[in-house]
Design a protein around this nucleic acid. Structure first.
Lengths: 138, 138
DNA sequence: TCATTAAATGCACTTCCATTGCATTTCATT
DNA sequence: AATGAAATGCAATGGAAGTGCATTTAATGA
Protein backbone atom coordinates (compact mmCIF):
# COMPACT_ATOMS: atom_id res chain seq x y z
CA UNK A 1 0.00 0.00 0.00
CA UNK A 2 1.45 3.29 -1.05
CA UNK A 3 0.97 6.73 0.34
CA UNK A 4 -0.56 9.55 -1.66
CA UNK A 5 2.87 11.12 -1.88
CA UNK A 6 4.25 7.98 -3.45
CA UNK A 7 1.34 7.77 -5.84
CA UNK A 8 1.83 11.32 -7.03
CA UNK A 9 5.55 10.86 -7.43
CA UNK A 10 5.08 7.63 -9.33
CA UNK A 11 2.92 9.58 -11.77
CA UNK A 12 5.50 12.30 -12.09
CA UNK A 13 3.43 14.83 -10.19
CA UNK A 14 5.29 17.11 -7.87
CA UNK A 15 4.00 16.80 -4.34
CA UNK A 16 2.71 20.01 -2.78
CA UNK A 17 0.49 20.67 0.20
CA UNK A 18 -2.25 21.95 -2.07
CA UNK A 19 -2.17 18.92 -4.30
CA UNK A 20 -2.33 16.56 -1.37
CA UNK A 21 -5.37 18.36 -0.04
CA UNK A 22 -7.10 18.34 -3.39
CA UNK A 23 -6.29 14.69 -3.90
CA UNK A 24 -7.70 13.81 -0.51
CA UNK A 25 -10.80 15.86 -1.21
CA UNK A 26 -11.42 14.02 -4.46
CA UNK A 27 -10.66 10.67 -2.88
CA UNK A 28 -13.09 11.24 -0.08
CA UNK A 29 -15.90 12.19 -2.46
CA UNK A 30 -17.81 9.30 -3.91
CA UNK A 31 -19.11 11.54 -6.66
CA UNK A 32 -17.68 13.61 -9.45
CA UNK A 33 -17.20 17.23 -8.46
CA UNK A 34 -17.14 20.52 -10.26
CA UNK A 35 -14.41 23.11 -9.98
CA UNK A 36 -16.80 25.18 -7.90
CA UNK A 37 -17.23 22.31 -5.50
CA UNK A 38 -13.51 22.21 -4.96
CA UNK A 39 -13.41 25.96 -4.74
CA UNK A 40 -15.98 25.97 -1.97
CA UNK A 41 -14.02 23.36 -0.08
CA UNK A 42 -10.83 25.38 -0.26
CA UNK A 43 -11.84 28.98 -0.03
CA UNK A 44 -8.32 30.06 0.71
CA UNK A 45 -6.98 28.74 -2.54
CA UNK A 46 -7.22 30.43 -5.88
CA UNK A 47 -9.50 29.14 -8.61
CA UNK A 48 -6.63 28.98 -11.03
CA UNK A 49 -4.57 26.76 -8.79
CA UNK A 50 -7.44 24.35 -8.36
CA UNK A 51 -8.14 24.45 -12.06
CA UNK A 52 -4.56 23.71 -12.98
CA UNK A 53 -4.24 21.07 -10.32
CA UNK A 54 -7.10 18.99 -11.65
CA UNK A 55 -5.81 19.54 -15.17
CA UNK A 56 -2.46 18.18 -14.04
CA UNK A 57 -4.13 15.20 -12.40
CA UNK A 58 -5.95 14.63 -15.65
CA UNK A 59 -2.86 14.84 -17.84
CA UNK A 60 -0.94 12.51 -15.58
CA UNK A 61 -3.74 10.00 -15.57
CA UNK A 62 -4.94 9.96 -12.00
CA UNK A 63 -8.20 11.79 -12.60
CA UNK A 64 -10.62 12.14 -15.45
CA UNK A 65 -13.09 14.62 -16.67
CA UNK A 66 -16.78 13.84 -16.86
CA UNK A 67 -19.29 15.50 -19.08
CA UNK A 68 -22.62 14.57 -17.57
CA UNK A 69 -24.71 16.85 -19.69
CA UNK A 70 -25.27 19.52 -17.08
CA UNK A 71 -22.93 21.76 -19.02
CA UNK A 72 -20.45 21.90 -16.18
CA UNK A 73 -17.32 19.84 -16.29
CA UNK A 74 -16.86 17.46 -13.41
CA UNK A 75 -13.83 15.58 -12.20
CA UNK A 76 -13.23 12.33 -10.41
CA UNK A 77 -10.22 10.30 -9.43
CA UNK A 78 -9.54 7.26 -11.52
CA UNK A 79 -10.25 4.09 -9.64
CA UNK A 80 -9.45 0.50 -10.25
CA UNK A 81 -11.06 -0.49 -13.46
CA UNK A 82 -10.89 3.04 -14.75
CA UNK A 83 -9.13 2.89 -18.06
CA UNK A 84 -9.48 6.47 -19.17
CA UNK A 85 -5.92 6.53 -20.45
CA UNK A 86 -6.84 3.97 -23.05
CA UNK A 87 -8.08 5.37 -26.31
CA UNK A 88 -11.01 3.07 -26.55
CA UNK A 89 -12.11 3.83 -23.05
CA UNK A 90 -15.70 3.31 -22.10
CA UNK A 91 -16.86 5.83 -19.57
CA UNK A 92 -20.02 5.06 -17.72
CA UNK A 93 -21.49 7.61 -15.39
CA UNK A 94 -24.79 8.05 -13.68
CA UNK A 95 -26.26 11.49 -13.21
CA UNK A 96 -29.09 11.96 -10.74
CA UNK A 97 -31.69 14.47 -11.88
CA UNK A 98 -32.77 15.12 -8.32
CA UNK A 99 -29.64 15.60 -6.24
CA UNK A 100 -27.62 16.54 -9.31
CA UNK A 101 -24.80 14.25 -8.31
CA UNK A 102 -22.77 12.28 -10.79
CA UNK A 103 -21.40 8.90 -9.89
CA UNK A 104 -18.81 6.73 -11.61
CA UNK A 105 -20.05 3.24 -12.29
CA UNK A 106 -16.71 1.71 -13.06
CA UNK A 107 -17.83 -1.82 -12.52
CA UNK A 108 -20.49 -1.50 -15.19
CA UNK A 109 -19.09 -2.16 -18.60
CA UNK A 110 -20.54 -0.84 -21.80
CA UNK A 111 -21.18 -3.11 -24.74
CA UNK A 112 -19.28 -2.34 -27.89
CA UNK A 113 -21.10 0.29 -29.94
CA UNK A 114 -21.31 -0.29 -33.65
CA UNK A 115 -20.83 2.68 -35.92
CA UNK A 116 -21.59 2.92 -39.64
CA UNK A 117 -19.07 2.06 -42.35
CA UNK A 118 -16.31 4.62 -42.64
CA UNK A 119 -16.66 5.84 -39.09
CA UNK A 120 -13.86 5.21 -36.63
CA UNK A 121 -14.78 5.03 -32.97
CA UNK A 122 -12.06 6.28 -30.66
CA UNK A 123 -13.95 7.05 -27.52
CA UNK A 124 -17.37 6.62 -26.02
CA UNK A 125 -19.05 8.83 -23.48
CA UNK A 126 -22.09 7.33 -21.87
CA UNK A 127 -24.14 9.07 -19.22
CA UNK A 128 -27.22 7.48 -17.76
CA UNK A 129 -29.60 9.98 -16.18
CA UNK A 130 -32.27 9.25 -13.70
CA UNK A 131 -32.68 8.85 -9.99
CA UNK A 132 -29.89 7.56 -7.81
CA UNK A 133 -30.26 5.05 -5.02
CA UNK A 134 -30.29 7.68 -2.31
CA UNK A 135 -33.00 9.76 -3.95
CA UNK A 136 -35.14 6.80 -4.97
CA UNK A 137 -35.29 5.73 -1.35
CA UNK A 138 -34.09 2.18 -1.93
CA UNK B 1 -47.14 14.89 -46.75
CA UNK B 2 -47.48 18.01 -44.72
CA UNK B 3 -45.92 21.40 -45.12
CA UNK B 4 -43.63 22.90 -42.53
CA UNK B 5 -46.41 25.30 -41.60
CA UNK B 6 -48.71 22.41 -40.89
CA UNK B 7 -46.05 20.62 -38.91
CA UNK B 8 -45.44 23.65 -36.72
CA UNK B 9 -49.12 24.22 -36.19
CA UNK B 10 -49.69 20.61 -35.32
CA UNK B 11 -47.08 20.99 -32.63
CA UNK B 12 -48.70 24.14 -31.32
CA UNK B 13 -45.92 26.38 -32.55
CA UNK B 14 -46.95 29.70 -33.97
CA UNK B 15 -45.75 30.07 -37.53
CA UNK B 16 -43.50 33.04 -38.22
CA UNK B 17 -41.14 33.83 -41.06
CA UNK B 18 -38.18 33.50 -38.74
CA UNK B 19 -39.22 30.12 -37.47
CA UNK B 20 -39.76 28.80 -40.95
CA UNK B 21 -36.30 29.91 -41.94
CA UNK B 22 -34.70 28.38 -38.90
CA UNK B 23 -36.61 25.17 -39.38
CA UNK B 24 -35.49 24.95 -42.97
CA UNK B 25 -31.93 25.65 -41.98
CA UNK B 26 -31.96 22.85 -39.43
CA UNK B 27 -33.70 20.50 -41.84
CA UNK B 28 -31.14 21.10 -44.53
CA UNK B 29 -28.22 20.41 -42.20
CA UNK B 30 -27.28 16.80 -41.79
CA UNK B 31 -25.41 17.62 -38.63
CA UNK B 32 -26.19 19.10 -35.26
CA UNK B 33 -25.52 22.82 -35.15
CA UNK B 34 -24.59 25.29 -32.49
CA UNK B 35 -26.38 28.53 -31.80
CA UNK B 36 -23.45 30.32 -33.39
CA UNK B 37 -23.88 28.29 -36.54
CA UNK B 38 -27.45 29.47 -36.80
CA UNK B 39 -26.39 32.97 -35.92
CA UNK B 40 -23.89 33.02 -38.76
CA UNK B 41 -26.53 31.82 -41.16
CA UNK B 42 -28.93 34.56 -40.17
CA UNK B 43 -26.85 37.59 -39.45
CA UNK B 44 -29.85 39.85 -39.56
CA UNK B 45 -31.56 38.08 -36.71
CA UNK B 46 -30.84 38.53 -33.06
CA UNK B 47 -29.13 35.84 -31.01
CA UNK B 48 -31.94 35.86 -28.53
CA UNK B 49 -34.57 35.17 -31.13
CA UNK B 50 -32.60 32.24 -32.47
CA UNK B 51 -31.97 31.01 -28.97
CA UNK B 52 -35.61 31.17 -28.01
CA UNK B 53 -36.69 29.66 -31.28
CA UNK B 54 -34.65 26.51 -30.83
CA UNK B 55 -35.77 26.38 -27.22
CA UNK B 56 -39.36 26.49 -28.42
CA UNK B 57 -38.67 23.77 -30.95
CA UNK B 58 -37.17 21.73 -28.16
CA UNK B 59 -40.07 22.21 -25.78
CA UNK B 60 -42.58 21.35 -28.44
CA UNK B 61 -40.69 18.24 -29.38
CA UNK B 62 -39.51 18.90 -32.90
CA UNK B 63 -35.85 19.40 -32.06
CA UNK B 64 -33.49 18.15 -29.42
CA UNK B 65 -30.40 19.30 -27.73
CA UNK B 66 -27.14 17.42 -28.05
CA UNK B 67 -24.28 17.53 -25.65
CA UNK B 68 -21.38 16.10 -27.57
CA UNK B 69 -18.73 16.95 -25.05
CA UNK B 70 -17.30 19.94 -26.86
CA UNK B 71 -18.83 22.13 -24.19
CA UNK B 72 -21.09 23.83 -26.68
CA UNK B 73 -24.72 22.84 -26.91
CA UNK B 74 -25.86 21.69 -30.31
CA UNK B 75 -29.30 21.26 -31.78
CA UNK B 76 -30.86 19.02 -34.37
CA UNK B 77 -34.33 18.39 -35.65
CA UNK B 78 -35.96 15.22 -34.50
CA UNK B 79 -36.23 12.73 -37.30
CA UNK B 80 -38.13 9.55 -37.73
CA UNK B 81 -36.94 7.18 -35.09
CA UNK B 82 -36.05 10.03 -32.82
CA UNK B 83 -37.94 9.49 -29.63
CA UNK B 84 -36.48 12.22 -27.50
CA UNK B 85 -39.88 13.00 -26.02
CA UNK B 86 -39.99 9.56 -24.50
CA UNK B 87 -38.53 9.28 -21.05
CA UNK B 88 -36.44 6.26 -21.80
CA UNK B 89 -35.02 7.76 -24.95
CA UNK B 90 -31.70 6.55 -26.22
CA UNK B 91 -29.76 9.28 -27.92
CA UNK B 92 -26.89 8.22 -30.11
CA UNK B 93 -24.62 10.76 -31.63
CA UNK B 94 -21.27 10.68 -33.32
CA UNK B 95 -18.78 13.46 -32.84
CA UNK B 96 -15.86 13.77 -35.23
CA UNK B 97 -12.68 14.89 -33.54
CA UNK B 98 -11.31 16.22 -36.81
CA UNK B 99 -14.06 18.24 -38.46
CA UNK B 100 -15.80 18.78 -35.14
CA UNK B 101 -19.16 17.88 -36.61
CA UNK B 102 -21.77 15.98 -34.70
CA UNK B 103 -24.10 13.61 -36.48
CA UNK B 104 -27.28 11.95 -35.31
CA UNK B 105 -27.21 8.20 -35.81
CA UNK B 106 -30.89 7.60 -35.33
CA UNK B 107 -30.89 4.24 -37.03
CA UNK B 108 -28.35 2.88 -34.58
CA UNK B 109 -30.02 1.64 -31.49
CA UNK B 110 -28.38 1.38 -28.12
CA UNK B 111 -28.62 -1.75 -26.03
CA UNK B 112 -30.37 -1.37 -22.73
CA UNK B 113 -27.95 -0.22 -20.05
CA UNK B 114 -28.14 -1.92 -16.71
CA UNK B 115 -27.82 0.21 -13.61
CA UNK B 116 -27.25 -0.95 -10.04
CA UNK B 117 -30.05 -1.74 -7.61
CA UNK B 118 -31.88 1.33 -6.43
CA UNK B 119 -30.98 3.39 -9.47
CA UNK B 120 -33.71 4.43 -11.88
CA UNK B 121 -32.68 5.08 -15.45
CA UNK B 122 -34.74 7.73 -17.17
CA UNK B 123 -32.54 8.79 -20.01
CA UNK B 124 -29.32 7.83 -21.69
CA UNK B 125 -26.92 10.12 -23.47
CA UNK B 126 -24.38 8.35 -25.63
CA UNK B 127 -21.79 10.12 -27.71
CA UNK B 128 -19.29 8.19 -29.75
CA UNK B 129 -16.20 10.19 -30.63
CA UNK B 130 -13.79 9.45 -33.38
CA UNK B 131 -13.38 10.09 -37.07
CA UNK B 132 -16.34 10.44 -39.38
CA UNK B 133 -16.65 8.89 -42.82
CA UNK B 134 -15.72 12.08 -44.61
CA UNK B 135 -12.57 12.64 -42.58
CA UNK B 136 -11.48 9.00 -42.61
CA UNK B 137 -11.50 9.10 -46.38
CA UNK B 138 -13.81 6.12 -46.86
C1' DT C 1 23.82 26.19 3.50
C1' DC C 2 23.19 28.99 -0.21
C1' DA C 3 22.34 29.96 -4.98
C1' DT C 4 20.13 28.63 -9.02
C1' DT C 5 16.42 27.13 -11.67
C1' DA C 6 12.10 25.25 -12.71
C1' DA C 7 7.66 24.49 -11.30
C1' DA C 8 3.58 25.94 -8.62
C1' DT C 9 0.68 29.50 -7.07
C1' DG C 10 -2.01 33.83 -7.02
C1' DC C 11 -3.99 37.81 -9.25
C1' DA C 12 -6.08 40.12 -12.94
C1' DC C 13 -8.13 39.67 -17.16
C1' DT C 14 -10.41 38.01 -21.18
C1' DT C 15 -13.51 35.31 -23.83
C1' DC C 16 -17.33 32.62 -24.83
C1' DC C 17 -21.75 30.84 -24.21
C1' DA C 18 -26.18 30.71 -21.89
C1' DT C 19 -29.82 33.22 -20.08
C1' DT C 20 -32.98 36.99 -18.60
C1' DG C 21 -35.61 41.62 -18.26
C1' DC C 22 -37.82 44.83 -20.63
C1' DA C 23 -39.41 47.61 -24.38
C1' DT C 24 -41.21 47.16 -28.95
C1' DT C 25 -43.22 44.93 -32.76
C1' DT C 26 -45.97 41.53 -34.91
C1' DC C 27 -49.70 38.43 -35.12
C1' DA C 28 -54.30 36.37 -34.24
C1' DT C 29 -58.91 37.22 -32.79
C1' DT C 30 -62.98 39.73 -31.94
C1' DA D 1 -59.83 48.82 -36.20
C1' DA D 2 -58.98 47.45 -31.29
C1' DT D 3 -57.29 44.32 -28.08
C1' DG D 4 -54.32 41.09 -25.97
C1' DA D 5 -50.87 37.71 -26.36
C1' DA D 6 -46.90 36.09 -28.28
C1' DA D 7 -42.58 37.01 -30.81
C1' DT D 8 -38.68 39.80 -31.52
C1' DG D 9 -34.76 42.91 -30.57
C1' DC D 10 -31.66 45.21 -27.48
C1' DA D 11 -28.99 45.45 -23.45
C1' DA D 12 -27.14 43.43 -19.80
C1' DT D 13 -25.86 39.71 -16.56
C1' DG D 14 -23.73 35.56 -14.85
C1' DG D 15 -21.00 31.52 -14.95
C1' DA D 16 -17.37 28.81 -16.39
C1' DA D 17 -13.10 28.10 -18.99
C1' DG D 18 -8.89 29.61 -20.01
C1' DT D 19 -4.46 32.73 -20.30
C1' DG D 20 -0.48 36.00 -19.18
C1' DC D 21 2.44 37.47 -15.94
C1' DA D 22 4.46 38.38 -11.51
C1' DT D 23 5.56 36.09 -7.24
C1' DT D 24 6.37 32.32 -4.29
C1' DT D 25 7.74 27.72 -3.32
C1' DA D 26 10.27 23.62 -3.85
C1' DA D 27 14.10 20.66 -5.72
C1' DT D 28 18.92 20.54 -7.16
C1' DG D 29 23.67 21.05 -7.24
C1' DA D 30 27.74 23.67 -5.89
Amino acid sequence: MQTIEQLLESKDIRVTAMRLLIYKFLAQKQIAVTLSDIENAFEKADRTTLYRTVKTFEEKGIAHQIDDGTGITKYALCEEGCSCEIETDLHLHFHCNICNETICLTEHKIPQIKVPEGFVSENVNLVVKGICDKCSGH
